[in-house]
Design a protein around this nucleic acid. Structure first.
Length: 223
DNA sequence: GCGACAG
DNA sequence: ATCTTGTCGC
């Protein structure tokens, strides 16, 4: 996928401008509604899905989907410019509006502290948590084999995330605050959303929906 | 120059 | 992310 000249440099400049507005603070109230969002790809289109659950009961309350044309290729560190538009579009449709949003990707565990979770959280103005299946940046050890064990993810001398075992004996998840939450919130909320699978329920369901959309064809999706 | 590199 | 069969482990 081709990009107009200078797009990559402009994207990086925007990240550095937006990161000044990221706020990491402890949630004042326990969330009542939590959502998860993810996207799959079919040609030049991003098939996005988002779902909201009651929290901490995790009863499914709403599901929304969207099909958005992608204008950016995948470039490590610039995922928000590829998936962000579709995710923002679909999350805006959710009812009730979520108090916290889990996104498949990094929060501040990013070269510019602006992973997709931080980026989307800032643009939507809602608390977000990055839930990635693998590492983008940072150094870390290996957490214990039991669910709940964790080690810090350190980047340039700063703790930017947690390498968290969400299930016994499975590869850990890379959790990092996105926006309007702190590290403790991120880890505790993800653990409360762990329901016997590696991925926390909100993100896991969004991922399943996304793959189903792809199987059944993008022609019938909203957006 | 070489290796790393979310989805 | 996506392309892909059988297969090992809980």
């Amino acid at each position: 996928m081709k990009l107009p000249p200078g797009s990559v440099a402009k994207a990086k400049t925007l990240q550095r401008r937006l990161r000044a507005r990221i706020v990491l603070a402890h949630l004042k109230e326990k969330p009542k509604f939590i959502a998860g969002a993810d996207a799959a790809f079919d040609g030049d289109f991003a098939l996005a899905a988002a779902c909201v659950f009651s929290f901490p009961a995790l009863e499914l309350l709403d599901i929304k989907t969207a099909c958005v044309k992608v204008k950016f290729p995948y470039i490590p560190g610039l995922l928000a410019f590829r998936e962000g538009p579709a995710v923002i579009n679909v999350v805006k449709k959710l009812r009730p509006k979520p108090d916290v949003l889990l996104i498949d990707g990094q929060g501040i565990a990013h070269p510019e502290r602006m992973g997709i979770a931080s980026h989307v959280g800032l643009l939507l103005g809602i608390p977000t948590i990055g839930c990635a299946k693998s590492r983008l940046v940072g150094e870390c050890g290996e957490p214990g084999k039991k669910a709940g064990s964790r080690v810090e993810l350190v980047y340039k001398g700063e703790t930017v995330g947690a390498v968290l075992r969400t299930k016994d004996n499975v590869r850990p998840m890379f959790i990092s605050p996105g926006h309007l939450v702190d590290m403790e919130d991120a880890v505790s909320i993800v653990l409360e959303c762990a329901r016997g699978f590696r991925m926390p329920e909100p993100t896991r369901q969004a991922d399943l929906i996304t793959k189903k959309m792809k199987r059944e064809g993008k022609q019938q999706c909203a957006g």
